[in-house]
Design a protein around this nucleic acid. Sequence first.
DNA 1: ATGCATTTCAAACGACTGTTTCAAACAATA
DNA 2: TATTGTTTGAAACAGTCGTTTGAAATGCAT
Lengths: 215, 215
Amino acid sequence: MSNKDHNSSEQPVPEDACNRLLDAAEKLFCKKGFHAVSVRELTTGAGCNIAAVNYHFGGKEKLYTEMFRRQFETMIQGHLEAIDRVMSEPNPSLEKLLWAVMEPPIRRVMNNETGGKILRLLVREVLDQKIDSEYIARDIKEKLFDRLGQVFMELVSGLPEEKITLIVMSFDGVILHPFLFMEFYQKTIPGLTVEQLIEHMVKFVASAIRGYAKS
Amino acid sequence: MSNKDHNSSEQPVPEDACNRLLDAAEKLFCKKGFHAVSVRELTTGAGCNIAAVNYHFGGKEKLYTEMFRRQFETMIQGHLEAIDRVMSEPNPSLEKLLWAVMEPPIRRVMNNETGGKILRLLVREVLDQKIDSEYIARDIKEKLFDRLGQVFMELVSGLPEEKITLIVMSFDGVILHPFLFMEFYQKTIPGLTVEQLIEHMVKFVASAIRGYAKS
DNA sequence: ATGCATTTCAAACGACTGTTTCAAACAATA
DNA sequence: TATTGTTTGAAACAGTCGTTTGAAATGCAT
């Protein structure tokens, strides 16, 4: 992992083979899934030799796992920071929280930016059961879902504590949907903007949670 | 496709190789995905020779497509019939409708019955983009989602028509979630019953929709 | 039973898979 | 410059993939 080049001007850091492979892995695995991507596809995509995958990562599967782990933790961290940011503001509300949690990832997926397909990756992982799903599940539950349930109860009084986990689950379902079916959204509702979509989701989930509190 | 056997007693119709292959395809493709299942796995699972896949269907891909088409249409039909059943009853309500649409598939997936993994298959298909997703999307939209939006408006007055599609989308997200993460549900909420889960989802979605109507 | 079409079977096909090999190129230290 | 450790390269590896083949088996009407 050397850095002979002085990285003089415009080029935004020429990555080494290791990171180029991780980038190509993210793009290709997210789009086509583990089995549908060959090592040769990865290496030509990353502009390096076939042997690089085994040299740097010890195999195709290890590269996949490493890529997944990084994306996964980035996602969890992003959500947690968004929650903390809202909750430390003067007048936190359920709507502000929902907006803060939903907006960044939705914006990424609608603009086809990097990291916008993490949830697709996660769903694919659950479907394929490649990585030990215990690890993923425990992380999501303990780090993210429990925290979400906690702030929901802080922001909305009267929520039944024993139903909080289910509420967070359904909230997750609402978020997940546009991630999986974004193309469907854009074909079915032409001209749909990020703001319209997020506004709808915030309204939908907020109504659901507040309705839950009243009964 | 002969039927020499008189199908005398207890055996519930010994299927021919064609249908045995379709059954094995449903089970294996749903569980592991297209690329992760080999033709040899399929044929040994169906109890027939390797060549049978190419003889009867013309290849692995054709078998997959045929299996998907059948499962997909079965699902759509089941939902439409549930909707019509509720709407033709004396006092239809939003809650009754939601319950009727959600209960059968959720019960199937929680009891690990056949057909309980259709939605997993559909999501996998969207992720892998193997079948022309135009066809799937158009079918779901025109046959199912439009009908759902229509009955939502009949049952709840004051719903903004331009938001109906988005509402149906989020409703779909809530349904989809336990399909994808049923194991997660059962580990996170031990002793969760079908009734509890459906009751929650009905309450969540009904609150969301009614809250939408009020604003 | 005879002839014909359908279905099954074991075996082999070429193509592609992930991985390994080992020599060449490179970087850094002395 | 000589030496060391690290990284890349082209080629080949053994294995599996989906598909094809042609002969054997079967079903069914004549």
